[in-house]
Write a protein that binds this DNA or RNA. Structure first.
Lengths: 248, 248
DNA sequence: CGGGCACTTGAAGATAATCAATGCCGGTGG
DNA sequence: CCACCGGCATTGATTATCTTCAAGTGCCCG
């Protein structure tokens, strides 16, 4: 087993022991014993090519997924054809929790780059939760966090200006990459400007302008999807409420 | 809209058998046997005077609560003193789920009118969940719904115009009252304009204007906090103008 | 009866959306 | 290898919606 009590539910290849994402995975904190017992429950997942949907909003809940590699977005579709990205997922993320409410996925999940996922089939969710106390706590925690996140996001989207939202997004991505052992100062965004703007509830044009503005202000260096954060302090300040002094 | 299913675990007076909110309570659907077993676990809650905080954002999770009577609001406070109402709770609602994420309440809950609550102490949450399959499913569902609701709310707050948001709010309240056996066409709003505007992320003035506008348009009759819905069809159309897609 | 607070109403101003066009890159085929 | 195509991204100009500022009304409670 890993160096500590870290676990994995099911993976697309290999056992949890070998998973490179133990640090961030759902199973972090599990006792090895439980891991062993759970592992046989899971089935092999298949790789997701870019653009593929993992599940669709409204579909019956088939499974919870853990993202092993790649990146996905979760989004909602409205009757009038609008599409709103509600979340980006990087490796280690768990997907499908919002489907626990009524056994139907509340959002759609789509790979924005080629990805692979591990899978906990829905028929095993309840029994697994019963049998594995740590998983029980974990799922409850994640669900609770999911709810709390929604609240924070509501504030971000409604109380913060466009600049602050983008700063917030950049810091969020930075932290995500940092937690995963990548550079928090320089990374490649897997998603399009369209996706970012949807996520931040802004027009694409606005996002584009903000990127340019940040660059002119010396906060970042950006070239297409690659970003380098030059002034994390200032970005962080903006993300938490400050505004950018009209520069350029 | 998410509170149609609620549970009841402990009440401030009497046993669950006598509770007038069984219809909407968390325990709906429970096998009587389980209720009986759970009931001894709960402790008496005390009445909440208007304005009293049930719990504060950041406090350690003490318990989950079920609202027995009255009305509460959940809100987040930001570093810069802003306050954002994220939810209104009517009898039968369960509160505190967003604290499951990290054992600290993610929001504050305050009585907007005199209320009383039932209580499931946190030290019992895990064991109760273990022992009572139905409670397990129920809590998971609620947490999942909580997450899903956050998504819908994000769309409402970012994609919908002020009018649509208020229409949505009125319909939401109407449905809440309807489910609880009150008239869905005529009711008293327990919360201030300030609260409503915060909930909808609008300026108080805007909310006020919309109320007036709706009245002039013959959609509603409003006098201070009492509201009568005259044209539910139109209101619904406005609110649902951005309803979620049916999703196959 | 007076004071305070919640609410309403009006006018001006700002932020981001929309409309419109161009630029850039990567891929494809001649 | 180069020219062209299509999607994504950027930039500019104008506009709409809602906020903000400011003032006024009326209700409730002492």
């Amino acid at each position: 087993m890993g160096t500590d009590n870290v676990v994995h539910i099911e993976q697309s290849d290999g056992s949890c022991d070998e998973c490179s994402h133990q640090q961030v995975c759902l199973t972090r904190g599990w006792v090895p014993d439980e891991i062993k017992k759970l592992e046989p429950n899971v089935r092999r997942g298949k790789p997701l090519p870019r653009g593929e949907l993992l599940y669709r909003q409204g579909e019956r809940l088939r499974a919870l997924y853990i993202l092993r590699s790649g990146a996905l977005k979760s989004f909602l579709s409205t009757a009038d054809g609008l599409e709103q990205v509600v979340r980006f997922h990087l490796p280690g993320a768990i997907l499908g929790l919002d489907g626990l409410g009524d056994d139907h996925y509340a959002s759609s999940a789509q790979a924005i780059v080629a990805s692979s996922v591990c899978r906990l089939p829905s028929e095993l969710i309840n029994s697994s939760i019963e049998k594995f106390p740590v998983l029980r706590m974990r799922i409850l925690r994640l669900a609770g966090r999911e709810a709390a996140l929604g609240h924070e996001r509501a504030i971000l989207l409604t109380q913060r200006a466009a600049e602050e939202r983008l700063a917030s997004f950049l810091i969020e991505m930075s932290e995500q990459y940092g937690q995963r052992g990548f550079s928090p100062r320089e990374f490649n965004l897997p998603m399009s400007r369209q996706d970012i703007s949807s996520y931040l509830s802004l027009a694409v044009e606005t996002v584009s302008r903000m990127f340019t503005g940040f660059q002119n202000a010396g906060l970042i260096e950006v070239d297409r999807r690659s970003v380098r954060l030059l002034d994390m302090g200032e970005l962080r300040a903006m993300a938490h409420g400050g505004r950018l002094a009209a520069a350029n």
